[in-house]
């Protein structure tokens, strides 16, 4: 059986509705919310601040610590709060996807903490988390060479689609999920994971789709950042 029409009537290269908002947590140095369809992520950035214990410090540059957590009520069946095998992995890939654009050489021995909370999940949470974290870092005034956006592409049945939702991820004839993160100007891939089966041609088609999606997301991110400043500037 082939997958002819998407469950939520989207086109195959159409993302879910995106909303982005910056400056949502007053106590944090930078914060942002990113919503794609029913997936909602919030990110808070603290720092640069002094890092303890001392053996973790790097005298040449600052370090980035990402912390990805899903809230217990974010999915239909409660998940146990606290770190898990899955969230540890996602924290790691998130920091690796953000580091290429960050310039932390001005903050030796210091740390920048990024806390990502998924408050509602419907597939694509790590991508939403990266998008929120990228905005929050920019809002915190950390020097960044570029913005990072992420979106998942994948194969549902026999079709290549962008931004899978939970229903598509659990498609009975098999689905492949490929989260991709990209920078804005040079379209460099900073995250690429793959869960499932896909041919080379399908992967390239998916990446091209992801590139278009990421560029759209970066525009939305930049708009949200500008709006956050304008609110404070009485224009």
């Amino acid at each position: 059986m082939s997958y002819t029409k998407r469950f939520d009537n989207r086109k195959f290269d159409e993302m879910r509705k995106i909303e982005a908002k910056v400056d949502i947590i007053p106590r944090a140095d930078g914060s942002a919310m990113f919503k794609i369809g029913d997936t909602v992520a919030i990110a808070a950035v603290y720092g640069p601040r002094s890092l303890h214990p001392k053996f973790l410090q790097d005298p040449e540059k600052g370090i980035l610590r990402c912390n990805y957590t899903m809230m217990p009520f974010s999915v239909s069946e409660r998940i146990r709060p606290g770190p898990s095998r899955r969230s540890t992995e996602i924290s790691l890939v998130t920091s690796k996807s953000l580091l290429p654009v960050l310039d932390l050489t001005k903050f030796p021995n210091a740390v920048v903490d990024v806390f990502i909370q998924i408050i509602q999940a419907n597939a694509g949470t790590r991508c939403a988390g990266i998008c929120a974290a990228s905005m929050a870092l920019a809002h915190a005034g950390i020097p960044m060479k570029d913005m990072v956006a992420a979106v998942s592409v994948g194969k549902v049945g026999d079709k290549i689609v962008i931004d899978l939702n939970k229903e598509e991820e659990d498609y009975e004839d098999g689905a492949t999920d490929i989260p991709v993160a990209m920078t804005g100007r040079n379209h460099e891939i900073t995250l690429l994971q793959l869960d499932g089966e896909v041919t080379k041609e399908e992967l390239m088609k998916g990446l091209e789709m992801a590139r278009k999606g990421c560029l759209d997301i970066i525009e939305i991110q930049k708009k949200a950042l500008r709006e956050a400043i304008k609110e404070n500037q009485n224009e």
Binding site: D29, G30, A138, A140, G141, M144, D146, I229, N232, Q233
Partner: peptide, 29 residues
């Protein structure tokens, strides 16, 4: 500077003083 471009690395206000480009940060610690 990146190749032929001058690129911003901050969220802030653009300030051009003669030939110098400066971005004044408006948020953060």
């Amino acid at each position: 500077r990146e190749g032929k471009h001058v690129v911003s690395e901050r969220l802030g206000l653009l300030n051009v003083d003669n030939r110098f480009i400066k971005v004044i940060p408006l948020t953060g610690s």
